[in-house]
Amino acid sequence: MRISAAQRTENENRIRAAMDRLLRGEIPPGGKCDIKTLASEAAVDRTAFYGTRPYSHLRVEFERRLRSLQDAGEIPDPREAQIARLKAENAKLKERLTQSEQTITELTDFRTQALARLASQHEEIVRLRDAARTSRVSRFPAPRTTVNGTCS
């Protein structure tokens, strides 16, 4: 079915208005910032945005504007923004978990080494005590002093 130039202009105006609303973040309930929602908001058949159809240039413009917003760090769709935020948070938590696991491994290794050293030192002390008790080391008698303080 052919449409008149006036109808086409009116449709383009509705599409541009809907495009602006979607890119500002005014997403209808159950919708997204995509061509399907754009078509339903502008009351235009979605197929009119593809191929050589009359509004394909508006689809290209919409996708370009959406991409430029995303490149600038703005996400007009609140759900997409929440998904991006949750993915970033998830990645950060995974990194913290990896660091925690690494720290736990290092501390466990340190603890094992410290206990091994303590056990070795304890065995050495016990061995030296036993050796001191059973040794036949004789001590020299204390030097005798005379009346004038000299040794004899």
Results as ranks from 00 to 15, higher is better:
residue 2 R to W: 07
residue 2 R to D: 12
residue 3 I to M: 14
residue 3 I to A: 06
residue 6 A to C: 06
residue 6 A to F: 13
residue 7 Q to A: 13
residue 8 R to Q: 15
residue 8 R to E: 15
residue 8 R to V: 06
residue 10 E to L: 13
residue 10 E to Y: 03
residue 11 N to S: 04
residue 11 N to G: 00
residue 13 N to W: 05
residue 14 R to D: 04
residue 16 R to Y: 04
residue 20 D to R: 15
residue 20 D to M: 07
residue 20 D to F: 06
residue 21 R to Y: 00
residue 21 R to F: 00
residue 22 L to N: 00
residue 24 R to Q: 14
residue 24 R to N: 12
residue 26 E to S: 08
residue 28 P to G: 07
residue 30 G to M: 02
residue 32 K to D: 13
residue 32 K to S: 14
residue 33 C to P: 08
residue 34 D to V: 02
residue 35 I to T: 15
residue 38 L to I: 01
residue 39 A to M: 03
residue 40 S to G: 02
residue 43 A to R: 11
residue 43 A to H: 12
residue 47 T to Q: 09
residue 48 A to D: 05
residue 49 F to I: 07
residue 50 Y to D: 08
residue 52 T to S: 14
residue 54 P to C: 03
residue 55 Y to H: 11
residue 55 Y to V: 05
residue 58 L to M: 06
residue 60 V to M: 04
residue 60 V to S: 10
residue 61 E to N: 03
residue 63 E to D: 11
residue 63 E to V: 12
residue 64 R to T: 14
residue 66 L to F: 03
residue 67 R to C: 04
residue 70 Q to I: 11
residue 73 G to R: 01
residue 73 G to C: 01
residue 73 G to F: 02
residue 75 I to V: 11
residue 77 D to I: 02
residue 77 D to S: 04
residue 78 P to T: 01
residue 79 R to G: 08
residue 80 E to L: 12
residue 80 E to Y: 08
residue 84 A to R: 15
residue 84 A to V: 12
residue 87 K to M: 14
residue 91 A to K: 15
residue 92 K to H: 07
residue 93 L to R: 09
residue 94 K to I: 09
residue 101 E to M: 07
residue 103 T to N: 10
residue 103 T to H: 05
residue 105 T to P: 00
residue 107 L to V: 05
residue 107 L to I: 06
residue 109 D to S: 05
residue 110 F to W: 07
residue 111 R to T: 07
residue 111 R to Y: 10
residue 115 L to Y: 11
residue 115 L to E: 15
residue 117 R to I: 10
residue 118 L to M: 10
residue 118 L to I: 09
residue 118 L to V: 07
residue 120 S to H: 12
residue 123 E to W: 06
residue 124 E to C: 08
residue 125 I to C: 13
residue 125 I to A: 15
residue 126 V to N: 08
residue 127 R to C: 12
residue 129 R to G: 10
residue 130 D to R: 14
residue 133 R to E: 15
residue 134 T to M: 09
residue 134 T to V: 07
residue 135 S to D: 13
residue 135 S to Y: 05
residue 136 R to H: 15
residue 138 S to P: 06
residue 143 P to N: 06
residue 143 P to L: 11
residue 145 T to E: 12
residue 145 T to W: 15
residue 146 T to V: 05
residue 146 T to F: 05
residue 147 V to C: 08
residue 148 N to Q: 12
residue 148 N to F: 13
residue 151 C to F: 15
residue 151 C to E: 13
residue 152 S to Q: 09
residue 152 S to N: 12
